[in-house]
Simulated assay, not measured.
Amino acid sequence: MQPTAENPSRHITEIKAQMASAVKVANRREADVTLIAVSKTRSAEEIEPLIAAGQRVFGENRIQEAAAKWPELKARHPDIMLHLIGQLQSNKAQDAVALFDCIHSVDRASLVCALGKAMRDQARHLPCFIQVNIGSEEQKGGCAISALPELLELAQQEGLIIAGLMCLPPAHVEPAPFFALLAELAARHKLAGLSMGMSGDFPTAIMLGATHIRIGTALFGDRN
């Protein structure tokens, strides 16, 4: 049964049970996997039940949408951590650094430099994930695998805190090989974080090392 927008808190228990099962199979610790509730297109009224259920990490795709609802929510719940998981334009870097607590979609040199400047300007140094175009898809964001070493070197020069790598594997194919490849790249570059896995494949992602999973539909239901 698809979850409805009215009862997302009921489904977080089911998701956490699946997470616990995958963690056990992988001989990992539950504390090593962070559930990011993807609240894009959802109103504050839809989000509040999840907050009441104890969820404290949320993900948004667009700065303008997040700015319309999260400052008030975070004022009431100051322990919430807000992650930007959508594509980010370089000219919005200052806004992103001011609003979010973590950025998952760093994928090009111009954005690395813009974020570095914004973080220095605001004295606010957020953890970031480098998004890798793991399936070499022209229509998707993410840096090419071959460009990853150079981008990581630039990020270090700009003072960015690189928490790990992020990917969106190709749709409608088995995601496991792409998750495994991202994990291999992260290990090669001595990065601990892996932002991978969504509603349809997060148990697989956890078994292959995911540290952050991004769950929207399984919590809130299909978007209108």
Rank of each mutant, 00 (worst) to 15 (best):
A210G: 11
R188A: 13
F178L: 11
N27D: 15
L82W: 02
N224E: 13
I15N: 05
F220D: 03
G193E: 02
C143H: 07
R28M: 11
L151F: 09
K16N: 14
F100T: 01
A66G: 02
A96M: 05
A205H: 07
A53N: 09
D121M: 14
L208R: 06
I15S: 04
C128F: 04
S90M: 09
P169W: 00
R28Q: 12
W70H: 00
Q139P: 00
L194V: 00
A118V: 10
A180P: 04
V112E: 11
A20D: 15
I130S: 03
R108V: 11
S199H: 05
F129Q: 06
L88W: 08
H104P: 11
A75P: 04
L88K: 03
Q64L: 04
V97R: 01
E65Q: 08
E72W: 07
T41P: 07
A26M: 02
E65V: 03
M196G: 04
A192F: 04
W70N: 02
V132R: 00
R108S: 07
A109H: 12
G221F: 02
S21G: 12
P170V: 06
T41W: 11
G86E: 12
A37N: 05
N91E: 01
E46C: 03
G209W: 06
M19Y: 03
G209V: 05
I85P: 03
H11G: 07
E48K: 15
F100M: 03
P169L: 01
L50A: 05
G164M: 08
F202M: 01
A93D: 14
L148T: 10
L219I: 08
H172T: 13
L115I: 06
E137C: 08
S9L: 10
R223N: 00
Q18I: 10
E46P: 07
A93C: 13
T41R: 10
Q94A: 14
M196P: 01
D95Q: 15
T211N: 05
S199C: 06
E158I: 01
V38A: 15
R62C: 08
Q87D: 06
I63M: 09
H77Q: 09
A180M: 11
K190C: 12
R28V: 01
F220M: 09
C167F: 02
D79E: 15
E174Y: 12
L111R: 06
I215L: 03
A20Y: 12
P71S: 10
A205C: 08
C143Y: 05
I51M: 06
E72Y: 06
E158R: 06
E65S: 04
N7L: 08
H104M: 11
C167Y: 03
G142K: 04
F179Y: 13
K117L: 13
L88A: 08
R28I: 02
Q156S: 08
L165S: 03
Q156D: 08
T4A: 08
R214E: 07
G193S: 00
F100G: 01
P203E: 11
G216F: 10
S199K: 01
V57W: 05
S43M: 13
M1I: 13
A75V: 08
S146I: 14
R214N: 11
A187N: 14
K24T: 09
L82G: 00
E138S: 15
E65M: 01
R76N: 14
L194P: 00
D101C: 05
E45M: 08
A26H: 01
F220Q: 03
A187K: 15
W70Q: 02
F58L: 06
D79G: 14
